[in-house]
């Protein structure tokens, strides 16, 4: 018992160290966000003597118009990915049908295509489809991209669920949709939560594609919209960092929320713990 307490303490210390290093950039981001231009040039680690709270004012005014867009897109993407990939992963994991393996590998192979390669052909296509300057032009490709990894993760998880659970459902004559909805999904909360967080984050931080496809100011997401923080031929980092801080707040909220609801330990169903 004492041994365990000692081990726990050591673990806590090490973990704190790791978290500190992982979070270090966030600290710098916060520090830089209140500095003046001169002080930023004078050194990244220096503590500011000339605190510029108005960086946040400027950032706020720039970020707010775009926040709704980022939120809408990210939520739509998460919902889309969860629905589409759950269906597909369930099918791939629990059914046997002709062509199952080739289909699965074809989907996984999509992860191996460098995205920058696809930029121009994809743009030509969405231009021809008249999707430019709409939310869809950002949502649909993001859902498509997010599903690939999601299917990869979910299929592995679904396949690992023990057979016995399904037996009992099937004996009661449940339809397939019910099995998915009532049995599999509740058990898969941790992995679904992971998928949700991952896709929210990727969608939120996607810069290049929205920059290229959305020119209407009113539709731009945050990371694309917060430009012209330039005062000089290099960027004005103070307000820019403040903008990044503000932009990451919703992200933090979402993570907190999803950690609570989805990854709160496995209390439902017959899963080992």
């Amino acid at each position: 018992m004492r041994n365990q307490r000692a081990v726990s303490a050591v673990a806590a210390v090490l973990l704190s160290l790791f978290v500190f290093f992982s979070f270090f950039p966030v600290l710098i981001m916060l520090l830089t966000s209140v500095k003046s231009r001169l002080e930023i040039s004078l050194g990244i680690f220096r503590l500011p003597t000339d605190i510029r709270w108005d960086n946040y004012g400027r950032a706020f005014r720039k970020v707010i118009p775009y926040t709704g867009n980022s939120l809408l897109i990210a939520v739509a993407v998460v919902v889309g990915v969860l629905i589409v990939s759950s269906l597909a992963a369930y099918s791939l994991a629990r059914y046997r049908f002709p062509g199952r393996e080739p289909i699965y590998y074809s989907i996984i192979a999509l992860m191996m295509v460098p995205t920058v390669l696809v930029l121009i052909p994809m743009f030509k296509m969405v231009a021809a489809l008249h999707l430019l300057n709409s939310y869809w032009v950002v949502i649909l490709p993001q859902v498509a991209g997010g599903c690939v990894m999601a299917v990869f993760l979910l299929r592995s998880f679904f396949a690992g669920l023990p057979e016995e659970l399904f037996e009992s459902f099937r004996i009661d004559g449940a339809r397939e949709g019910t099995v998915l909805r009532s049995l599999v999904l509740p058990l898969s909360k941790p992995i679904l939560g992971t998928v949700a967080v991952l896709n929210f984050n990727t969608s939120w931080n996607d810069y290049i594609w929205p920059m290229v496809t959305i020119n209407k100011e009113s539709l731009k997401p945050i990371v694309t919209g917060i430009m012209s923080f330039t005062n000089d031929y290099s960027s004005d980092y103070g307000p820019m960092m403040a903008a990044y801080v503000l932009a990451s707040l919703p992200l933090m909220l979402v993570i907190g929320f999803s950690m609570r609801y989805f990854v709160d330990g496995l209390t439902s169903g017959a899963v080992k713990a």
Partner: peptide, 21 residues
């Protein structure tokens, strides 16, 4: 059922992934 569940994904990927690639 299996194919039906797969359909949304395949359709989406066909347009936004496979074609451009």
């Amino acid at each position: 059922h299996a194919y039906a569940f797969l359909l949304p994904l395949i359709a989406l990927l066909a347009i936004f992934s496979y074609y451009p690639i």
